[in-house]
Design a protein around this nucleic acid. Structure first.
Lengths: 225, 225
DNA sequence: GCAAAAGTGTTTACTCTACACCCATGA
DNA sequence: TCATGGGTGTAGAGTAAACACTTTTGC
């Protein structure tokens, strides 16, 4: 019917957060094109795997990371986006918890590194566009879906959550109002555990109750910062 | 490097609105698989065209329609979604104005028809999922972006806009509050033209000022119903 | 006992909601 | 003059924003 010679790849923008810094996972390309340049991890989709499997496989192969949250971001199909020919890429958007920060390089990557999203290197292909879009999505989405918790440890002090939002939204937050609002959504369980950060009063730990969130969402309750 | 045999297609969910009814454009398939069944218009992407061009070309070929608003919806890549083999489809979401309702069938389509989204026929492939997602997107998006105007005539009475929102949101709206809110966004120009709908007081016509909207959006003003 | 971070309520401004009558036209 | 849809304001409720002191711990 037609002689299509388009290839399909997936790319994954993976974000991590720690100590007031949002980082993105990049690899240094081992082969041409853009050999030695930084890029978003990704690769070709195999004939029999789902797109999500392809993303997870490529991330595993290139960086060894285990992803905590994954969603489709956007598909990039400009005919000129890849010098090797027509390669359409379906980009994904992933989040990992701080303890998943251990990474290693292999297959197509000579190095893997976390980059502060405010100090990014030059990127290969159209990956700068992809990353820009992913950052916008992250910033937008944390205001109307509780995905911020996927960037924190399972048990976290309230101040960590607050600092994450301050970092992502780029503006100050009133501690009392923020706490009131989050608590009012009724999706956090307060634990009987405390954690001390060196100095100051130890903080109570909280845990995001995903089951309760989905229950409330079904009932029409809306999460909005 | 790899022997990928994935094909890439685009599909377009096109919505139209008239008289309190949201319709979607479907084609009846002329060939196997699913010959004689209804489907969302779409087809394979050519090697050298952008994805948007592919969508517009397929819509032109199959239905003759001119689209007014187009955005990417989601990419569907389940290996089993098409009995012909591995076909990944990038779905788009389009809106047309009422006067674009004239359609004709050709190429892959034996018939083209507008279906009320509340009275849909059985669909081919995974098109029911695609359509469901598109409907959710439409319903969600009109509450935070002014895309509803793309479904109305360029000049429209306020009551048309209100009826559109009532239809899409599936709940009643207070006429005074709705008008106040929309007016307060300052993206409508009130024209010195009136239109009469047979009986009753003639309504003033309004026009969406897209340029002003983008200006205000840049300044951080948020459209939200 | 002091430095550092955690925790907590109240008042005020603003936004959203509910609600009913008059207006302009065609038949 | 009546039927039909268009156009308009205000009061009360609810939500969001501003704001400062006390508590608990480590050193």
């Amino acid at each position: 019917m037609n002689k299509q010679s388009i290839k399909l790849s997936v790319d994954a923008v993976v974000f991590g957060y720690e100590e007031g810094i949002i980082s993105v996972l990049l690899i240094k390309r081992k082969y041409e094109p853009f050999k030695g340049k930084w890029a978003i991890p990704g690769g070709f989709v195999l004939n029999d795997e789902t797109l999500e499997c392809a993303v997870e496989r490529e991330l595993q192969e290139e960086t060894g990371i285990k992803i905590n949250y994954l969603e489709q971001l956007y598909s990039f199909g400009d005919p000129e986006r890849d010098p090797r020919g027509r390669i359409v890429s379906i980009a994904y958007f992933g989040l990992v918890r701080p303890n998943a920060f251990k990474i290693f390089a292999s297959t197509d990557a000579s190095e893997v590194e976390w980059f502060n999203i405010k100090e990014l290197p030059e990127l290969s292909f159209d990956h700068e566009n992809i990353l820009d879009l992913a950052i916008k999505r992250l910033q937008g989405k944390i205001t109307y879906e509780p995905i911020g918790f996927e960037l924190l440890d399972k048990k976290f002090p309230f101040s960590d959550l607050e600092k994450l939002y301050v970092t992502l939204l780029g503006r100050d937050i009133d501690r009392r109002n923020f706490r009131k609002k989050i608590i009012s959504f009724n999706v956090l369980d307060e634990l009987n555990e405390k954690v001390s950060k060196g100095s100051g009063r130890p903080a109570n730990l909280f845990q995001f109750n995903k089951k309760r969130y989905f229950q409330l969402k079904k009932e029409g309750i809306i999460f909005e910062i």
